[in-house]
Every structure is written in structure tokens, then in C-alpha cells.
């Protein structure tokens, strides 16, 4: 009985408290009606659409990317899609992309948009800066143009080389904060993409800018720096070698999967050959078994991201042989995923 009385008193107090708080609420201040959570298929479609910008810098993608912000994904998925979308918009570039970023700034101000302040502070300025720098110097042909482009980029992003250095030093090395890089770290990643393009275009000095920066503090940046001077075939060989000799898969290792997938169809014959080579092995000791299994799982994951008729039969073969990873990849592929489930860089 005593409990019943006290619970009534508590209910009364809570009721009064809520009434007091909600007093004066108008339709304008009422919570916006949120769209229901998007399903896995829509999420895969969103990731695939954004990651396709690595090959197709097509402004026609922009309206589709903008439409993604009307979906409501669960919190983890939302962060992945938002990062991938912002990187894609920066990569596509042009005045339309710049206008889209302006519109997104408004969306990021909405109270229901999770972590909007983070994207406004750390991603938007960098992507805008990239677009401005790309518009000013669409093709870098010599070292002088490269320096001017970097200067323009840093100026637009309100950063300096020292700020980049400090951001890398402060970049968290473990846990969830790793996937919320600061503006300086995002800028380093973007600059490395620009430097890789310049290097491939013959401006070998482009990578000098990064000498002395602690890139090892941010694995995606370090990886990009290592890969930039390599030709595509060398890059493919290096990545396949690395991905098939790992004793365990950490979070950062997934950036190697992304890098290999972004090498494009050039990598496909080598991946197919590696899968055949590994599946013929009969490892005996535990370390070797783990290495081969991780290697095979990695190759299958990259393979599943390609649009090629040879892909599905191989995944089906492994799925029938009771490969859990192949079953999962096949399911994702049939749902439309073409890419790697990781934050785009």
C-alpha cells in the first residue's frame, strides 16, 4: 500500500512537471515528424552511390546524393552515409556541389540531424575548400600550380600546415573518436587525394608537402601517402600482398580494402588469381590457417564490390562451402551494395 501511495505521488509530480515544461508549446516548436528508419537495402544503395564517385565524378549524382539526407538511418549508419556523401560531393566538385553544400549546412542546423554541428565544423569547410581549389586549379601541371592550389585550399579551409600537424598529433588512436576526425585530419586526407592526382599527372613534388607530417597517426592518410607514388598495378600487388598476410583484421585495415576496390577493374584479374591460389593451399598450423582465411575473406569482400559476371559464381561457390563471409557478401551484393563498408576517405 505504501508503495502504491508513493507511486501515485510520484506520478502526480512527474505529470505536473511535464505539463509545466510543455506549457506554451506551439505547432512551430513541436518536434518534426521523422521519417521511419531506412532499411539495410536503402543504406547499401546510399553507400554505393556515394562511393561510385571515386570513379564517376558526375554532377548528375548530386541530386541523388542530396536525396539521401531525407532518409533517416540508424545513428551508426547515418554517420557512414553522411561522411561518404560529403566526400563524394567534394570529389564531384563544381558550382552545383558548392551550392549543395550550402543547402546541407541548413540541414545540419536542424535539431533532428544527429551530429550536425560536427559535420558543419569539420567536414563542410574542407569540402568547400576542396571545391574552390579544384575550381581555381582544375589540372595541376607543375610544382608552382600545386603550391598555389595547396595555399588556396588551406586558406579556404582556414588552416595552416602547423594546424594540420597539430591535428594529426591529436588524432585519437583508439575507439569511436577515431571515426570523428577533426577538420585538420579531414584536410590532410583530402590534400593527399589531390596530391595523388597531381603526382599521377607528373608533378612529383606534390608529395613533398607531407614530409615531416606525422601521417602514421592517421592510417588512411599514411596509406594514401604510401600508395601515391605507386602505379596502379604496383598498388594492386602491394595491397593484395598486405591483405592476404594479416594475422588479424583491425578497423583501419578496412581502408586497404577500400583502396584496393578503388583501383578499379584493373585489380580484378589479380584478385581472382589470388583467390584461386589461396583456396588451393592446405595450411596446417593455426597461424597459417587464420592468415589464409582472413586473406580469402578480404579478397572476396573486394571482389563482391565489382560489377562483373565472374563475381557471383565465385561467391556462390564459397557460400556453398559454408563460408559465412561469402554468404553475407552475396546477400549484400544482391541487395545492391557495390563498394566497401567503411567511411570513404
Amino acid at each position: 500500500m505504501r508503495y502504491q501511495i508513493s507511486s501515485r505521488v510520484v506520478s502526480g509530480l512527474v505529470g505536473s512537471f511535464i505539463t509545466a515544461l510543455l506549457w506554451g508549446q506551439t505547432p512551430q516548436t513541436a518536434a518534426p515528424k521523422l521519417s521511419p528508419l531506412a532499411d539495410e537495402e536503402q543504406w547499401f544503395a546510399a553507400i554505393s552511390l556515394c562511393q561510385s564517385s571515386a570513379w564517376r565524378k558526375d554532377p548528375a549524382l548530386l541530386p541523388k546524393i542530396e536525396a539521401l539526407f531525407q532518409y533517416r538511418f540508424n545513428a551508426r549508419a547515418q554517420h557512414g552515409v553522411t561522411v561518404d556523401a560529403l566526400v563524394a560531393i567534394g570529389r564531384i566538385g563544381g558550382s552545383e556541389a558548392l551550392a549543395l553544400l550550402e543547402r546541407l549546412e541548413t540541414i545540419f542546423h536542424k535539431p533532428y540531424f544527429l551530429s550536425g554541428a560536427y559535420y558543419r565544423e569539420h567536414y563542410l569547410p574542407v569540402m568547400k575548400a576542396r571545391i574552390q581549389a579544384d575550381l581555381a586549379f582544375p589540372q595541376v601541371r607543375n610544382s608552382e600550380q600545386w603550391h598555389q592550389k595547396v595555399e588556396r585550399f588551406l586558406q579556404e579551409a582556414e588552416l595552416t600546415r602547423e594546424a594540420l600537424q597539430e591535428a594529426l598529433h591529436k588524432h585519437p588512436q583508439r575507439g569511436d573518436p577515431m571515426v570523428y576526425p577533426s577538420r585538420g585530419v579531414v584536410a590532410v586526407r583530402v590534400l593527399l587525394e589531390l596530391a595523388s592526382e597531381a603526382y599521377a599527372g607528373g608533378v612529383k613534388e606534390a608529395l613533398k608537402f607531407f614530409e615531416g607530417l606525422p601521417l602514421e597517426r592517421d592510417y588512411p592518410s599514411w596509406l594514401r601517402y604510401q600508395l601515391a607514388p605507386l602505379e596502379v598495378k604496383q598498388r594492386v600487388r602491394w595491397l593484395i600482398g598486405s591483405l592476404t598476410s594479416k594475422p588479424a583484421m583491425r578497423f583501419v585495415d578496412h581502408y586497404e580494402l577500400l583502396a584496393l576496390w578503388q583501383c578499379g577493374l584493373v585489380a580484378l584479374p589479380e584478385i581472382l588469381a589470388k583467390i584461386e591460389e589461396l583456396s588451393k593451399l592446405k595450411p596446417k598450423d593455426e597461424e597459417e590457417i587464420v592468415r589464409v582465411n582472413i586473406g580469402l575473406a578480404n579478397m572476396l569482400e573486394v571482389l563482391a564490390g565489382y560489377e562483373d559476371p565472374r563475381v557471383e559464381p565465385i561467391l556462390e561457390r564459397f557460400a556453398q562451402a559454408d563460408w559465412f563471409e561469402a554468404e553475407q557478401l552475396l546477400r549484400w551484393r544482391r541487395q545492391g551494395l557495390r563498394g566497401i563498408l567503411i567511411f570513404d576517405w
Partner: peptide, 11 residues
């Protein structure tokens, strides 16, 4: 190391 910093969860 990120154990206690805003882990978004499956809603």
C-alpha cells in the same frame, strides 16, 4: 580510447 564517448546504438 573512446569507451565512453557517444556510442550511437542500434535504435
Amino acid at each position: 580510447c573512446g569507451f565512453f564517448t557517444s556510442c550511437p546504438l542500434d535504435e
